[in-house]
Design a protein around this nucleic acid. Structure first.
Lengths: 330, 330
DNA sequence: TTGTAAGCGTTATCAC
DNA sequence: GTGATAACGCTTACAA
């Protein structure tokens, strides 16, 4: 059985296709009774408009493309949740185009694939706008950047500098030596995220402001194994009691494990401040920075929706601030 | 500047739109010289066909929808990699529709969103076909199931029973007591995956076959915290030396941490067999089961592509077998 | 081998 | 208010 079309609906309701279209798009000029008639026919036939046809006819397809790095991180799940729920309210669908690696990105940019045929585009973490400029890729459609910032584009991003500063101010008031573990920035120019250097900058600025200094700094890449190794290295050399700012909960968790393995008491021998407030952080009593990620996603969606709704004003930047959650470990 | 259309290309090449379309779709009946002319015009104009228009005109949109659970697991990244690379070879785009929770799923099923307007559909992990039947959702388009199995649909799935069996056969030959940690199955009927019970079934069958029995069994949900807790509980009560089958590397990793914290030597006091072969498993010397996930994704894509290519035969099921990688921990 | 024209399912622009 | 009808960008007969 063929999918019902707008023609079928019109025929069944005994009206013209134009009227059906008006009902579909909430064009006020439809009489109440007629509207009911059409709605009934739509229900009877279980009709849904074809988004491709809508799009091609110059209307909206009610689809948003999200260019998303595929990384196994809670962060993106939460972000997606925020984006999705906001778009859903506005009856938009969200399609994700995975950015698995650089070559995939090139492909998306090189061709004007379906990702660029949606009503709007959400670009996450990676700031591709510079590429759009360089390559003269005419990205006509409304775009919003999330977890990234650029001039002239609507953005919603986390203020990681403030997050780092909050950690630094808190740590500065704690007794004992100060240590920090930073996350290594990736080499690839394009696929670089600046969040970790921002956290670092904020933390150092806070220490400086309070006249304290780090006894030593450590660096690790963002994976479980590196986290374990750096935890071991740090505790091998640390002078207790001490306070450690682990610039990601992944790092903090490994440090807690290692400390426990050595019979040390977190919050006394080793104070630990994480960053992210992962789902397990509360249960382990980790003092850490919570980021309003869902809100950021929600707001990003609103920015884009306002553009789709006709907003033509200047680019807006929405900054979100992490806040410190003090628990047992520091 | 407007996006160039097929009309523009035709005009520039001095041919009809039909000819351009033929070139675009590799319809053999185009003279070499004409083809070159068209190709040149396409290049000059930087033209790319509009997938919406293609789709609506009854052709292909060259887009595949993937219904994917959004879980922060390496497994899905690898799977996506396999799917994407295969589809890319065939010049198809992949759009992901995230299944964040049950309500999202309902929505996708209830309306005929863009997800169902692609050339083909890949459904991952969750077997939704039964829903399609129950609700009389006419899913006309070619579909393939990955990491799931159902009658009458092309499937590519991992043989977790065999994986469990391999672990069991290996463990049965090891000295000392035998323990196992299982992963709790979620309650939601729909969002249930059977992989963990399959691993369990295979393992138990192997033990039974060799006349050995488990000294005790433990259960944990699939998260870092639960993994730590169950590791503690197990080592509190375990009689050493022993062998533990942790039915997911997440569990095995936590056990290794806990063992080390207690000064135990993995591979001697506590032998550990994991399941998944996570990226860090090799570095930690974890004996575990490796799953050919990328291959599974690749094959799933091939199954779907063959349907798109006109294959009308019966449904095919492709089974993939994990294999044991023996390293230091067991 | 190639051009022309009729769809495909919508929206938007007209008249009425 | 509402019904025709012309786009939209493409594929695919059908002619030539």
């Amino acid at each position: 059985m063929r999918k019902p079309t707008i023609q079928d609906v019109a025929r069944r309701a005994g009206v013209g296709v134009g009227t059906v279209s008006r009902v579909l798009n909430n064009h006020a000029a439809v009489k109440g009774a007629t509207r009911e008639l059409v709605l009934q026919a739509i229900a009877d036939l279980d009709y849904t408009p074809n988004p491709h046809a809508r799009r091609i006819a110059g209307g909206k397809s009610y689809t948003i493309s999200v260019l998303l790095p595929v990384v196994t991180t809670e962060f993106y799940v939460r972000l997606l949740d925020g984006l999705e729920s906001a778009f859903q309210e506005a009856r938009y669908d969200v399609a994700i185009f995975p950015l698995l690696d650089r070559s995939r990105l090139e492909r998306y940019l090189g061709s004007h694939t379906l990702a660029y045929q949606a009503d709007g585009l959400v670009m996450v973490t990676y700031n591709l706008t510079q590429l759009f400029n360089e390559r003269r890729l005419r990205n006509q459609q409304p775009t919003v950047l999330v977890d990234a910032y650029a001039e002239g584009v609507d953005c919603a991003f986390m203020d990681n500098v403030t997050g780092g500063r909050l950690a630094g101010e808190y740590a500065a008031r704690l007794p004992g030596e100060l240590y920090a573990i930073w996350v290594e920035t990736e080499l690839d120019q394009l696929f670089t995220t600046r969040v970790f250097e921002e956290r670092r900058a904020g933390f150092r600025a806070a220490l400086q402001g309070s006249g304290r200094t780090l006894r030593a700094e450590f660096t690790a890449s963002f994976d479980a194994l590196a986290a374990r190794n750096v935890a071991t290295a740090l505790l091998d050399e640390a002078q207790l009691p001490c306070t450690v700012f682990a610039s990601a909960d992944l790092l903090a968790g490994a440090l807690l494990d290692e400390a426990r393995g050595r019979g040390l008491t977190p919050g006394e021998d080793v104070r630990v401040i994480g960053f992210d407030d992962q789902p397990w952080a509360a249960a382990r009593g980790l003092t850490t920075l919570h980021q309003p990620v869902e809100q950021m996603g929600h707001e990003a969606a609103q920015l884009l929706l306002s553009r789709l709704g006709g907003y033509r004003g200047p680019a807006r930047a929405r900054r979100f601030e992490p806040h410190l959650i003090v628990r047992d470990t520091a």
